[in-house]
Structure formats: structure tokens, C-alpha cells
Amino acid sequence: MGALTRLERFDELFPDFFRRFARPLALADEVPGDIKLDLIENDKDYLVRADVPGAKKEDIRVSVDRNFVSIAADVKREREERQGGRVLVKETYVGSASRGFSLAHEIDEKEVRATLEDGVLRLTLPKRDGAGGHSIAIE
């Protein structure tokens, strides 16, 4: 007899107990793990679109060190369900998300531009003149 069969039987003994906790929490699906991003390279710069829902601009930190970019955000989300005047469910998430990546070219840190709109961080990362990757001939 497998473990799944034993668990199904246990569930049958206490159906109301498990039904109460089986409801998926909507907030759990909305909490960030890693920051999801799109990266596009042009001749002169990189364009980054990073999803950081629930973060305010003062809670987002972007750092650039030569060709390494780091994005970190503190995120807070709350959801409350009311029925009449009573609170039935209140779910709160406080946490952080981060993402780091290396690029083929060094970035001109002084010319980086960042904007945040509707939970989307947009970065323009200009390539530093004369820096970046180059091909190595194999002997």
C-alpha cells in the first residue's frame, strides 16, 4: 500500500478539517520568487524590463559594477476579505526578491537610467566605450 493511499484514507476520516485548508491562497500565487526580466541588447545599450510588483521605488535597489547588474526589492502585499463588518481572512506577505546578471559589455554607470511604472522597472544600461567582450582566436 503506497503512501498516497494512506493519505487518502486519512483525508476521508477528517474531510472538514482538510477542506478548510485545501482552499488555495490567492496571495501565495502573487508573491515574488525571483524577479522576472526581459533583456534586449542594442548597439549602444542594454534595455531591461523587470517585474517587481508590490515594490515601491524607494524599496528597489539597483547596482552596477562594471558588467554585473543587481536588482533587489523589498515587497509588501496585503489582502483582506470582509463579510459584513467582520474580517474573515487577512493575508500579509513581507519579503524580498533579487536578481543579478552579467553582461558582455561593461556599463557606463553614470549614464544608467531607471524608471518604475505599474510594478515594472525599466533600465537603460549604456555600454561603456571601448569596453566589453572581444573574441579570442584559438591557436
Score class of each variant (00 low, 15 high):
90 K>N: 02
52 V>T: 10
114 A>V: 09
118 D>K: 03
16 D>G: 13
76 K>F: 12
16 D>T: 13
106 E>Q: 09
87 V>F: 06
29 D>V: 06
43 D>V: 12
11 D>A: 11
131 A>T: 10
60 I>Q: 00
118 D>P: 01
50 A>S: 10
123 L>N: 00
47 L>Q: 15
39 L>S: 07
82 R>L: 14
37 L>V: 10
106 E>V: 04
8 E>Y: 09
77 R>S: 06
13 L>Q: 13
135 S>I: 14
35 I>R: 00
133 G>I: 13
21 F>Q: 04
126 P>I: 07
98 S>T: 04
83 Q>C: 07
45 D>G: 03
93 Y>R: 00
32 P>K: 02
7 L>P: 01
107 I>C: 03
97 A>M: 02
78 E>Y: 05
99 R>A: 09
88 L>Y: 04
94 V>P: 01
7 L>K: 09
73 A>N: 00
97 A>G: 01
24 P>G: 05
47 L>P: 00
54 G>A: 11
74 D>V: 12
114 A>N: 03
30 E>R: 14
51 D>N: 12
8 E>V: 10
107 I>V: 13
1 M>W: 08
127 K>I: 09
32 P>S: 10
78 E>F: 04
131 A>W: 12
109 E>C: 01
37 L>G: 03
29 D>N: 14
135 S>C: 08
50 A>L: 11
33 G>V: 12
111 E>T: 04
98 S>P: 00
133 G>H: 07
54 G>V: 07
79 R>I: 07
87 V>S: 03
90 K>R: 09
56 K>E: 15
29 D>A: 13
137 A>Y: 13
41 E>M: 08
22 A>V: 03
12 E>N: 11
91 E>F: 08
25 L>I: 05
12 E>Q: 12
47 L>G: 06
80 E>V: 15
118 D>M: 04
13 L>S: 03
32 P>V: 10
122 R>Q: 12
